[in-house]
Computed example of a mutant assay.
Amino acid sequence: MEISKLLYDSLPLTRVGFLPKTEEVIFAQDYSCFASMLEEYISYGVARIYMPNSAPEVSSIDEMPKILKCRVKLFDDSYEIDASHRILHGLRKEFGVVFTEDGIQLKFKSKSDRDIRSPMVELHSLVRKLAIGFNHSLQVDIELEKSIELLRFMRGKVLDGQTRVILAQLEAVLGTYSAVNFDAPSLVNRTKPSDTILMFDRLINDETYLEYSHNIARLSDPLSRNDALMHIRLLGGKIRKFEPLSAVWNYVAKVISVSAAGIPVPDTGLIASLVKNRPLPSIIDLTQARSKAFCNWSNTNKVETPLDSKGNPVVGGEVQWMSPSLGTKMINPQRDDVVSINGRKLRDALSKLLDKED
């Protein structure tokens, strides 16, 4: 039975605090916000989270809570990376953009147009996500309208005819999508992060939830879409009545973007290399979901001690923690959970920031 599968997108936050007595500044990696993101995953019937081998988090997957780690599946995305590189080769060539030695980061000339730097990075990410969605039958997190605007913007910048055609065809693919609305079961905001992780583990072993997940996956097929929506409504009601969990559920409107019926992928060499005879993937815009997850987490956890990847407090003592901001993702190649710095100047700077927040 096909189930709803989602491309992984982590949401760890950097927490900063200090010990007043020793003037020691603490930087900690806080995983407690990801549990709030799980609430959104549950609404979309996600039963398996897929993480590409190219993701930076692969190196720290062993640090995830065991109950969550077993639900994350690693997969090789080298084909999709190569396909996105080939498709956008002409674009990079026109603007003199190359890859760094690791073949991952884009390297721009010092005099290159700064207006195209961020869009260029976003475009490579977009094409890679689409390729992954096509070839692995995954729901992918894409801002549809923003992505269409991105393709139009870059098409207006580029002069090469073939590249313009490719960008136009990618825009045409996204243009086939339309929104499907449905009411989904959703956990209320007061649910604790640890309870949410346990809830997720119990649900993906529950037959009703797996059937709900199956029908979410069926939305990508135009022929089964109406029948899937009917089952989603019925199963959503059953999930809310699941006896041990009924007190923490609510209904929330959800949107998933799916391709219209009978519209083929453009039949050209480069665009065809993006797919392997797979149907168009479902698209979920998790921008608001991430903001909601952060707000829910912030309202209940922002003054608490950060949690490590195992759900335990990262440090003890009388650490005064700053309130974090959305978008401050931790990038830590050392895989350390806590970094401390002893310095009066940095402590004073943090104190001033705290005063501004107050």
Rank of each mutant, 00 (worst) to 15 (best):
M1E: 03
S4C: 05
S4Y: 03
K5R: 13
L19S: 02
T22I: 11
I26D: 10
A28V: 13
F34G: 06
M37N: 13
L38P: 02
I42D: 04
V46G: 02
V46Q: 01
I49Q: 03
N53K: 13
E57Y: 01
S60W: 06
I61A: 00
I67S: 12
I67G: 04
L74I: 05
F75M: 00
D76L: 01
S78C: 08
Y79T: 10
Y79C: 11
E80W: 01
I81G: 04
D82P: 04
D82Q: 14
L88K: 08
R92W: 08
R92V: 01
F95V: 01
K107G: 00
K107R: 09
F108H: 08
K111T: 08
D113M: 10
S118H: 05
S118P: 00
S118F: 08
P119Y: 02
V127W: 06
I132V: 13
I132P: 09
I132G: 07
G133H: 07
F134G: 07
I142F: 04
I142G: 10
E149T: 10
F153D: 03
G156R: 08
D160V: 14
R164I: 14
L167D: 07
L170S: 07
V173D: 09
G175I: 00
T176I: 05
A179Y: 05
S186E: 03
T191D: 05
K192T: 00
K192Q: 08
P193F: 06
D195R: 00
I197V: 14
L203E: 07
L203F: 15
Y209P: 02
L210G: 00
S213P: 10
N215P: 01
P222E: 13
P222N: 09
S224A: 11
S224D: 03
D227F: 03
L235T: 02
G237I: 11
F242P: 02
L245Q: 06
S246D: 07
V248Y: 12
N250R: 15
Y251I: 14
V255T: 12
V255D: 03
I256L: 15
P266G: 03
T268H: 15
G269W: 01
L270E: 12
I271G: 00
I271H: 10
L274I: 12
V275A: 13
L280I: 09
I283P: 12
L286G: 01
R290I: 02
N299V: 07
K302Q: 15
V303R: 11
T305H: 13
P306W: 13
P306L: 11
L307T: 05
S309G: 15
K310Q: 14
N312C: 06
P313H: 06
V314G: 08
G317W: 05
W321K: 12
W321A: 15
S325R: 06
L326E: 06
M330Y: 09
I331H: 14
N332F: 14
R335I: 09
R335G: 01
D336R: 15
D336N: 13
S340T: 15
S340D: 05
I341R: 10
K345C: 13
R347E: 13
D348S: 12
S351G: 14
L353M: 11
E357S: 03
D358L: 13
